[in-house]
């Protein structure tokens, strides 16, 4: 899959009379980890849902490479190469870990509908191949031992890992991480952080939405700070940290 840059150009979203996101522009290049931080209600989740195709833009546009994806529906955004995780882990709790990862390969299925309806050998072979690929991802993340465990029975940290593996199964060029380490201790968070760095090292862009300042500062090359729907600061961690506007927003001045 050819890597391409995600760019937001003057993106706004209005709910009733309230501008939840106002004139936001930034970009995420392949292999880059960009942070998006801001206090509660700053519009971070709205922004993720705008990119992921769950919310309609009021104005502005979103590009992936040269393609305008501002109005594409969520499945097409995923197929264009943008994967995401959710603020609260969302797994198919009754299904096994392996099945949870295997479903991530859905968009890559090639056998025609009729072949799958009739369970023709070609379709069955594809299902088997998918499961093998899913298993390979499990092995890479040291989760092969849990392959047949119902996902709902795992610990929180492991569930986060399964969600991460599922997004990788999509073979994305870009991943939106919506508060991935919320509720984790520092050790768990750092373990996950190393995984993110590995993923970015493969040329996948990451947009990291987080509350945990320490975590964001340690991972991101660039950080955008959102407050009341607007970007109030943007730049490398050190610069953002000392920005008076950021300090004010975070201390609730």
């Amino acid at each position: 899959m050819t890597a391409s840059t995600l760019s937001l150009e003057g993106v706004s979203r209005r709910f009733g009379g309230v501008l939840a996101v106002e004139n936001v522009s930034f970009s995420v290049a392949p292999g880059e980890i960009v942070g998006l931080i801001g206090p509660n209600g700053a519009g971070k989740s709205t922004l993720v849902n705008l990119i992921a195709g769950l919310l309609r833009l009021t104005s502005g546009r979103i590009l992936l490479g040269a393609a305008d994806i501002s109005t594409a529906e969520a499945p097409e955004i995923a197929r264009a190469g943008i994967a995401r995780t959710f603020q609260t882990v969302r797994l198919l709790k009754d299904e096994s870990v392996l099945d949870n990862v295997a479903i991530g390969f859905h968009a890559q299925q090639k056998s025609p509908l009729l072949a799958r309806l009739l369970a023709l050998p070609a379709a069955l072979a594809e299902v088997r191949a998918t499961r093998e690929q899913a298993f390979a991802i499990l092995e890479r993340f040291d989760m092969a031992g849990f392959a047949h465990v119902p996902a709902g029975a795992l610990s929180y940290g492991h569930q986060r890992r399964v969600e991460m593996m599922r997004t990788l199964a999509l073979r994305p060029n870009l991943i939106l991480l919506d508060e991935p380490v919320a509720g984790m201790n520092d050790v768990e968070a750092d373990a996950l952080g190393r995984i993110f760095q590995g993923i970015a090292g493969e040329g996948i862009g990451i947009l990291l939405i987080e509350h945990n300042m320490r975590f964001v500062m340690s991972l991101c090359g660039r950080i955008n700070v959102l407050d009341s729907g607007r970007i109030i600061a943007s730049g490398p961690p050190a610069q953002v940290r000392s920005d008076p506007a950021v300090v004010a927003a975070y201390l609730g001045a």
């Binding site: 992921a52 195709g53 769950l54 529906e73 969520a74 499945p75 097409e76 995923a78 197929r79 994967a83 995401r84 959710f86 969302r90 797994l91 198919l92 709790k93 009754d94 299904e95 099945d99 295997a102 479903i103 991530g104 859905h106 968009a107 299925q109 056998s111 072949a115 799958r116 309806l117 009739l118 369970a119 023709l120 379709a123 069955l124 594809e126 299902v127 998918t130 599922r166 999509l170």
Partner: peptide, 21 residues
Amino acid sequence: AGIGSTFDAIRQEETVAVSLG
């Protein structure tokens, strides 16, 4: 042949399903 598990995904978590394409 995979249609069943796609159905299962949609039934349990539709938002996840669309996010997986």
